[in-house]
């Protein structure tokens, strides 16, 4: 059995975890911070506050250090 719950239109990664006890594969979608590329699984109603960068047009992880726009691509020297 394969369980997939779409939680976002544009996931940045997909996590799969096999559950041998119930013969299932659980699949989760993640978003990632456009400034540090931290990935997190979307949990609607979790209460975790994330951010949004209007320059990058993408979500941020919500850490104070990622409140200032320094794109991940710039940090990594692209």
């Amino acid at each position: 059995m394969h369980l997939l719950k779409h939680t976002t239109r544009k996931p940045k990664s997909i996590i799969t975890i096999d559950d041998p006890e119930f013969n299932q594969q659980i699949q989760m979608e993640t978003k990632c911070c456009c400034h540090c590329r931290q990935h997190w699984v979307l949990k609607p109603g979790s209460g975790v506050t994330r951010g949004y960068c209007f320059k990058c047009g993408d979500v941020t992880c919500g850490r104070k250090a990622c409140g200032t726009c320094v794109p991940y691509e710039k940090k990594q020297g692209w």
């Binding site: 990664s13 997909i14 996590i15 975890i17 041998p20 590329r37 990935h39």
Partner: peptide, 12 residues
């Protein structure tokens, strides 16, 4: 007992 796999999507 499980296997964990992570697949990046474009720009991830």
């Amino acid at each position: 007992r499980s296997v964990f796999q992570w697949y990046a999507q474009p720009n991830g």
